[in-house]
């Protein structure tokens, strides 16, 4: 028997193509899978900016969140915050930045000075989820939380490009370089993956409220199932005028703001 080198290369090439058939069959199975039924629960959050802005410079919700989730705080050698490598799950933005389509010159002074708390909007139609090439970020059917799987994320940052709210952060470097005290009940991340708020799903599973909700002394953040007509959040929404960030994009955010 004699195999010519050219034939050998051909056979090797064809075998490699055969390997592609395996994921392809999985893909077909995936396409065939119909959408699973939804339980109807949808978690949402209402942030009362009137209450929130009473205490100027308060960062309780941010500190609590970043502490329980081991979010690093990078600083430059001169002590200034490192904006380039920055990671944040929840933070404050000028009203005009957070709600730039509600911004105009003659907005009342009070509103102009509001620092709005912003975080992942846990959209009904999350653009980050549709673009993810590995399903490392997905929307939970049972409660609408937009989740992250840091084991699976390949760090392509397509979700960051797709998010209209700037809610996603990438680990440009190893977060452990600066994390001193760690919450051992929650992992840190490794360099090269994307992270964001996950509505404290790990705390919800223990029957606890999200850390930011618990941390707020002014009770400015209300969290609950927006599909439940008797929930606190529904009562709040039916009695107050609320706005959303960039409602025109069709993402349908789950973070409501009372101004």
């Amino acid at each position: 028997m004699s195999i010519k080198r050219r034939d050998f290369i051909k056979i090797t090439g064809l075998s490699t193509l055969g390997l592609v058939a395996i994921p392809a069959s999985e893909l077909l199975a995936e396409i065939a899978k119909t959408e699973t039924s939804k339980s109807g629960k949808k978690l949402a959050m209402a942030i009362d900016l009137r209450k929130c802005s009473k205490e100027e410079g308060c960062t309780d919700c941010i500190d609590a969140c970043h502490k329980v989730h081991n979010v690093p705080n990078f600083v430059l050698p001169d002590g200034k915050p490192n904006r380039k490598d920055e990671i944040k799950w929840i933070w404050k933005e000028h009203f005009g930045h957070a709600f730039n389509d509600n911004q105009h010159e003659f907005l009342s002074e009070k509103i102009q000075h509001i620092e709005a708390v912003v975080l992942c909007n846990h959209c009904e139609n999350p653009p980050c989820v549709s673009v993810c090439p590995t399903k490392a970020t997905w929307k939970r059917d049972e409660d609408g939380i937009v989740m992250m799987d840091w084991h699976r994320c390949i760090g392509c940052r397509y979700c960051i490009a797709a998010c209209p709210y700037g809610s996603r952060s990438f680990n440009w470097r190893d977060p452990r370089e600066v994390l001193e005290e760690q919450n051992t009940d929650f992992p840190t991340r490794m360099k090269g993956v994307v992270e964001k708020c996950t509505f404290c799903n790990e705390r919800l599973s223990r029957g606890l409220q999200p850390a930011c909700v618990e941390a707020c002394k002014a009770n400015a953040i209300v969290f609950g199932d927006i599909h439940d007509p008797k929930s606190d959040i529904r009562k709040l929404l039916s009695n107050n005028f609320t706005i959303l960030r960039k409602p025109g994009l069709g993402t349908n955010p789950a973070i409501y703001y009372i101004v």
């Binding site: 999985e26 590995t134 760090g155």
Partner: peptide, 21 residues
Amino acid sequence: DMGQPFRILNVFLHPSPNSPM
């Protein structure tokens, strides 16, 4: 450009027809 280049096969292990990537 990838943050976790060694996980590149995840693109085929978890194919996502929704993603242009």
